[in-house]
Design a protein around this nucleic acid. Sequence first.
DNA 1: TTGCTCCTCACGTCACGTGAGGTGGC
DNA 2: TTGCTCCTCACGTCACGTGAGGTGGC
Lengths: 151, 151
Amino acid sequence: MVASSMPTITSTSLRIGELAALTGTTPRTIRYYEEIGLLARGDRPKGKHRLYRESDVRRLVELTRLRDLLGLSLEELRRLLEAEEARDELRRAWRQSPVAQERLRIVDEALRHLSRQLRLVRRRRRQLERLEADLSESRRVALARRRELRS
Amino acid sequence: MVASSMPTITSTSLRIGELAALTGTTPRTIRYYEEIGLLARGDRPKGKHRLYRESDVRRLVELTRLRDLLGLSLEELRRLLEAEEARDELRRAWRQSPVAQERLRIVDEALRHLSRQLRLVRRRRRQLERLEADLSESRRVALARRRELRS
DNA sequence: TTGCTCCTCACGTCACGTGAGGTGGC
DNA sequence: TTGCTCCTCACGTCACGTGAGGTGGC
């Protein structure tokens, strides 16, 4: 009873419904993202259940976050994250290559990518701040009017 | 030559293409919003051109802003703005009714509505700020790594 | 084994995009 | 009048939602 059938190879193995619940999305969305190539296929005999790991949770959270908060189409999202996939590739290469020259190139690539996302996020935040300021101003006016009516 | 054919009744009269350009959207979107009742029909002999005024520009800008920045569906948007239309109704009533009691009710209604929108906007802004903080942190780590590599 | 979740089509829906063919005129 | 923009269908597309009918088992 102590040693179960087989040792788990992957960290935590999730089914599609569990991944969906953890990321606040739906199985259908996950299958669709796989279909259009936003999520990896993960070699699996056709008809059998999909299995996911911790890294898939992080990936999907990032996807939905950028999608919702930046309002990107899935095509734009794909282009934005292609760079990131290349970065992951490089990160793997990083461990193999302790050559400083090479490592510097990898870090610079990552920095360019992060800067691009930060620019998009900041622009959005400024737009939201402007909307919030406009609404606050309207409220300020309404509050003043109410005070006047009450006096 | 001084007195042209007829005096313009509406402030500025815009065609659908001009309204679209001013609001950063498309004629098709405007027609669709009219179709589903987000924009007024504006009595017009069927087949003839639609004409818009300054107030339509403001309305459409508000619509697209809330749609894009809050990520609302058009159904949610409609519900959010139904209150606002009621508010416009009341605003017209305002001018007729100088009864303080009635005016107070109108202002309170407006305030509740503004607060609701502000809550949505602020929640969004906090989410964006969290995303921005996460990205900034990643960049900080990458920058530190680069400094180390360069030394 | 039973009951849940999963599987793959496949059609439906929302929010428009994109012609096609025709008419209007701030 | 000519050329632009507008008009109304109507079909296409993106990003999924929603069954239907069947199979799998972290």
